[in-house]
Amino acid sequence: MDDYPLLNIFATMMWFFLWVVWLMLLFQVFGDLFRDDTVSGWAKAGWSIFVIVLPLLGVFVYLIVRGKGMGRREVAAMRERESRYYEAAERRAADRTTGQADELTRLADLKNHGELTPEEYERAKAKVLAI
């Protein structure tokens, strides 16, 4: 430990942190590039080569040229995912309500035909409504 001073440890941690940030930024750029349907295949290939051959310059140029649209596309994708989530939640709630109504109708028929006692019916009904 004597041959690696504290300041070098901090410098190593800083470089490691910058490397992780760089990788996150690189993945964000590639993710945005390949999710964007308005960009042709040739343009995607060109941007990819530019970012791979000259990584620092390529990412910064990409952020300057397409940065504003990058944010808009991300917000649009988040809104679309949110709307799909709420639609699925509404469908599940409707299915659950319909399922409860069907089950209660079936229990009422069983009670009316004498196959369930009133106590059994009330217990089963409470069980269905508790779900």
Rank of each mutant, 00 (worst) to 15 (best):
A77M: 11
V39F: 13
G69W: 00
G67R: 01
T97H: 11
E74A: 11
R73V: 04
D95F: 09
R73A: 07
A93C: 02
S40L: 06
G58F: 02
W47I: 08
W47A: 08
L56P: 04
R73W: 02
Y62W: 14
T98D: 10
V65W: 08
V61P: 04
A43V: 15
A43F: 09
T98R: 15
S40Q: 04
E87Y: 07
M70I: 03
E74Y: 13
I52K: 08
R81K: 15
S83P: 03
I52T: 11
R91K: 14
F60Q: 09
T38C: 03
I64M: 06
K44W: 08
S83M: 11
V53K: 10
W47C: 03
K68R: 14
F60P: 00
R91V: 07
A94M: 07
V65A: 06
V51S: 02
I52E: 04
F50S: 12
E74N: 03
G58C: 06
A77Q: 12
R81L: 13
E80T: 13
L57W: 10
Y62R: 05
S40N: 12
A76E: 14
A45F: 15
L54D: 01
W42H: 13
F60A: 05
E90W: 05
V39N: 01
E90D: 06
W42G: 15
V53P: 05
M78W: 11
A77R: 12
R79C: 06
A93N: 04
G99R: 13
E80W: 11
D37S: 13
V39H: 09
I64F: 10
R66C: 07
G67P: 06
K44L: 05
A43N: 14
I49Y: 05
R79Q: 15
V39W: 02
E87L: 13
V59D: 00
